[in-house]
Nucleic acid binder design. Sequence first.
DNA 1: GCCAACGTTGGC
DNA 2: GCCAACGTTGGC
Length: 165
Amino acid sequence: MIIFILSTQNEQNGQHMAYWLFKTEPDTFSIDDLKVAGKQGTFWEGVRNYQARNFLRDNVKLNDLVFIYHSSCKVPAIVGIGKVITAAQPDPYQFNNKSDYFDSKASIQNPRWYGVTLEYVKHLQPISLADIKADPRITELALKKASRLSIMPVTENEWQLLNPS
DNA sequence: GCCAACGTTGGC
DNA sequence: GCCAACGTTGGC
């Protein structure tokens, strides 16, 4: 019962949970793929940018909520929500020399790249990049600034503005 | 498919 | 540690 109550609130051990936006190319991995993965979720592999890595490794916590954003497609947009079900773990692809994500400078003892595991929560009515850019209330989101960041924080205020419910 | 903006690499 | 050259991202 207590667990149930905790899980329905916005807090975890007294710490307020955080909000994020993760980009993905839907041709490679879409929110529908995340949905199909079900309760076991999907490991968010292949992030190879240090700023994004630092967020994943140091700041993205269990139960944080994530806007799923489709990039490099016809209508770039926030398309839904995911939830973090496993905090940072070394990205195994960095050790696999047959993978595009292989990094010869990374070792098991000293991993360089990390990922978290997300579980599908729900689809949203898509919020296009054009809409976000046109919304004068949204000023802090890194997407506003032609950022190439693939993992970015979302303030609670802007999360609520984009996802009122 | 173009290309601007940005991140990374490596010679010096 | 600067910075030119190169590679990548991602909107358009």
